[in-house]
């Protein structure tokens, strides 16, 4: 087959210059990591310089009022390990459990209401017609707009905080569940019924597992929003919490502590998302779900 070999010669000659696949992939990952570094480093450098030279940026942003990055780092260490002996020393270990409890309570309450409601709305036209107008009416109201009313209705404290979190986590979960429940293949419902599954049984044994990926997505968005709304929900006068501490820091004009609080909320939100994902991975083991 010498004649056909001729045609492949240019390709063969070019081959050695192309790195083999695994090495290329390894190099690609290293490249990704390395490319991820310069911008954050530049950000920190500019932050430091801007603070030192008290830059004035557009929108009236006066960098002179910022803490130095190094101060924030020290504040963070103090908040975690109590190195400074001030009002914020080791306070994380009081704030984090208090905030996490609010987020978890609100999120759990939202899930408990939203998943059954979403399953019913996704499967039964009557349920959908009954609740859809209410959901569309309430969904566009931002949680911030609820704060004054909640202050009057519930007063200040944990319950008001949990109410706001529940409210904001509810909508993404219910919408995810509805869309998941609607997309259950009709064939699987038929299979379940001809194998002797009752109506309620079908919801539990077919609709829930088939809708699981959409429900999990909704829950992840909901949990993220719960952390977003946490700071706002802790303006309702609760004494401890990551958000409360940010406001305390503002009142005593300790900007490094404000930034420390912001960082801690971001990390807590990120970790809780990982935890939720891990929980579902353990729950489903390696079961193939409908994508």
């Amino acid at each position: 087959m010498t004649t056909t070999d001729v045609a492949t010669v240019p390709v063969a000659a070019a081959a050695p210059t192309v790195p083999d696949a695994p090495r290329r992939r390894g190099r690609g990952r290293l490249r990704t990591v390395l490319l991820g570094l310069p911008v954050p480093v530049l950000f920190l450098v500019l932050w430091h310089l801007g603070r030192a030279q008290e830059w004035e940026l557009p929108l009236g942003l006066r960098m002179g009022f910022l803490p130095y990055p190094a101060d924030v780092a020290a504040g963070l260490v103090n908040y975690v390990a109590g190195t400074r002996d001030d009002a914020f020393s080791s306070l994380l270990w009081e704030d984090l459990p208090a905030s996490a409890l609010r987020v978890v309570s609100g999120f759990a309450l939202a899930t408990l209401i939203a998943v059954p409601l979403g399953v019913l709305m996704g499967r039964f036209r009557t349920a959908n017609s009954l609740f859809d107008p209410m959901i569309n009416l309430f969904r566009p109201i931002p949680a911030t707009a609820w704060v004054p009313l909640v202050a009057l209705l519930i007063g200040y404290g944990d319950q008001a905080s949990i109410f706001l979190i529940t409210l904001s986590a509810f909508f993404p979960i219910v919408l995810g569940t509805i869309s998941g429940a609607r997309q259950v293949p009709e064939r699987l419902l038929e299979a379940a019924r001809m194998l002797g599954t009752s109506g309620v049984g079908t919801l539990l044994r077919v609709v829930l597992p088939a809708a699981a990926p959409a429900i999990v997505n909704g829950m992840r968005v909901g949990l993220g929003l719960a952390w977003v709304i946490l700071v706002l929900s802790e303006t309702t006068g609760v004494p401890t919490g990551l958000g409360s501490t940010i406001f305390l820091a503002r009142d005593v004009v300790q900007t490094d502590q404000i930034v420390v609080g912001m960082i801690c909320i971001a990390v807590a939100g990120f970790l809780s998302d990982r935890l939720l994902t891990l929980f579902f991975r353990v729950l489903f083991r390696d079961r193939p779900l409908i994508k």
Partner: peptide
């Protein structure tokens, strides 16, 4: 069924 209708997660 022609398309089996098995539960994919079981």
């Amino acid at each position: 069924f022609q398309d089996y209708g098995l539960f994919p997660w079981l």
